[in-house]
Write a protein that binds this DNA or RNA. Structure first.
Lengths: 233, 233
DNA sequence: CACTCACTTTGCGCGAGCGCAAATTCTCTG
DNA sequence: CAGAGAATTTGCGCTCGCGCAAAGTGAGTG
């Protein structure tokens, strides 16, 4: 087990408000793990033995229905906790987590959560704050799915990705990991065909530039207009 | 302030695992409040000064979009906590809560949450377990909205309501509070017209009996078939 | 460097379910 | 108990976006 570099980790949101020695105590029982691109970090319905903080990379969280249809629940970015079923009283993971690119994670045994969260209340508070915003985000998605057209939903999804993981380039803000039309479809409840058509149209209008597994938003402002205009019902 | 009857409250899920004297300490700073049918318990975006346990009645949790469209996030039943924004590090309520019928609630000042949850870990664990299942449920709804037809979604919604709040009658299991076609539409992302058509069809098939603000499921098994058959995509 | 496979684009037809409108029925209130 | 308003039902046309199909375009590999 490599010695973890506390100084790089100290600034991450889950550990905010922890003293230096507290952080070391928190990190002591953690292992650092690597996952290659497209490799599963955990599977849906598996025993939730570990919980994680993502140190580097991007992770896709996917739910699969009994009929085999996949839905992307969210993407995890650097510095976020995930797989925290144990903190929410679950014994299994409700979704799978897959490394979207090569990833480095910290992993703790779930059994340690009760002790860690009581010994280090700041850790618990930070984690539950994250849970709160995820619950709110999930409800936001329900509302979007209920009230918006596909075009609006796709625009919102892209804007969210850009905000979360955007990286500035010459042509605009690029989504920082490989993402297919199919992926965007699975985030928005559309088909890859419809997503492809929308992207083509937006490309023509100069709002996005995109290629194989790559999306760059060159005009976020006009994309926001697409996201907001024309409600239904 | 009336003296609270601890014996009636002891069995509720949020208080499971608390000793008798602990329960009394938890209840001490709580106030009991009454709300008439259709009166708001709190408004969306309001300061989250209180958190609640529902002692009697049913509460509708509603999000309103900037365009004024309403979506029913969930219904709260007896014995559930709600309005727990503070436990999730939020300062405002992300949705409104409205009494679906005359209600009795227990209310605590949000400021007490940190103290209560650390002094009584069981209370914290029970609450976060609830949060966990709500997060999962929200994701389930996202998946349903992404992959199912309106008919399946409405069937699922009714089955969920029946499981949560069903009350046996001569004709089947009745949803225990007034609920309109419009309400069901706002839970499923459909229009009241489509919901009405579905209910009429199902009534014809002998699956449900319904009237004004009233729904009884007489054949849950066949409704489950409606909920599961024919996936799309 | 060619081959293959995954990803993407585009066309076309169709159907689920919305939007609008109007009639009907039930409940509550004065 | 009559009137009014809320909730429900039903009809009809239309559109968004899916389903299916087929062609095109990279990118990685042996």
């Amino acid at each position: 087990m490599p010695k973890l570099d506390a100084s790089l980790i100290a600034g991450l949101p889950p550990f905010e408000g922890l003293e230096k020695d507290e952080l070391e105590q928190v990190l002591a029982p953690a292992r650092s793990l690597r996952f290659e691109r497209e490799k599963p970090i955990f599977e849906q319905e598996a025993e939730a033995h570990l919980f994680f903080v993502l140190l580097d990379g991007h992770v896709r969280v996917v739910r699969t229905t009994t009929e085999g249809q996949q839905v992307i629940v969210r993407y995890i970015s650097e510095g976020e906790v995930f797989g925290i079923a144990a903190a929410l009283g679950r014994t299994t993971y409700p979704a799978a987590a897959i490394a979207a690119v090569d990833c480095v994670v910290l992993a703790w045994p779930s059994a340690l959560w009760p002790e860690l969260s009581t010994r280090f209340p700041a850790l618990g508070a930070n984690t539950y704050r994250t849970v709160g915003s995820r619950l709110q985000e999930a409800h936001t998605r329900v509302v979007e799915m209920s009230t918006e057209q596909v075009e609006q939903r796709v625009a919102h999804a892209l804007l969210r990705l850009v905000r979360q993981t955007g990286r500035k380039t010459g042509e605009g803000i690029e989504i920082d990991f490989p993402i297919t039309r199919q992926d965007i479809a699975e985030m928005t409840g559309a088909t890859l065909h419809t997503v492809s058509r929308l992207m083509s149209a937006w490309e023509g209008e100069g709002i996005v530039t995109s290629g194989r597994k790559r999306v760059t938003v060159s005009d976020p402002h006009r994309l926001m207009l697409k996201a907001e205009s024309r409600e239904k019902r």
